[in-house]
Design a protein around this nucleic acid. Structure first.
Length: 131
DNA sequence: CTCCTGACTCAGC
DNA sequence: GGCTGAGCCAGGA
């Protein structure tokens, strides 16, 4: 795990990325925004996103937010989000358990034993993007 | 309104 | 070094 550096007000940065100055977005919409920023062929963790949003203790909420990942538009690449070990803990929530892995492999990410190979190398820190 | 649960994480044993 | 318990917050019953 890359030591989580000083997280700044990422929410504000998100507001910049998403200049639809409407009402406050719910927590998972915020999560979706971050998730959509994940570059192809890269992955991140629930904790990283949570920390990025300032609620690192609520990584569960991030994962849960992903529950609606396929129900929103544009679609959220939930398959690029794994737990802090790089394990595909959320694959059971996809259409099929193989789907998540297939999507990852399709993007050049190798998956072995439900775990992303070279996870640390492929890890994408949301804080980097909004810095 | 209260209770339960959950795609995580960390700390303790 | 693996397993267990507790904390986290939001939404659904």
């Amino acid at each position: 795990m890359p030591a989580q550096k000083k997280i700044k007000s990422t929410k504000q940065k998100l507001a910049t990325v998403n200049p639809s100055g409407k009402k406050e977005e719910s927590f998972f919409e915020l999560v979706f925004e971050v998730a959509r920023q994940i570059p192809k062929g890269r992955v991140t963790s629930y904790g990283a996103i949570a920390a990025c949003l300032g609620t690192k203790l609520s990584a569960r909420m991030v994962g849960w937010a992903m529950n609606g990942a396929g129900k929103v538009k544009p679609k959220v690449p939930a398959h690029r989000v794994v737990n802090r070990n790089g394990m595909l803990t959320g694959k059971h929530h996809f259409a099929t358990e193989e789907l998540m892995q297939q999507l990852l492999e399709k993007e050049g990410i190798k998956v072995k034993d439900d775990t992303v190979v070279d996870f640390e190398k492929l890890f994408w820190d949301p804080a980097e993007e909004f810095m």
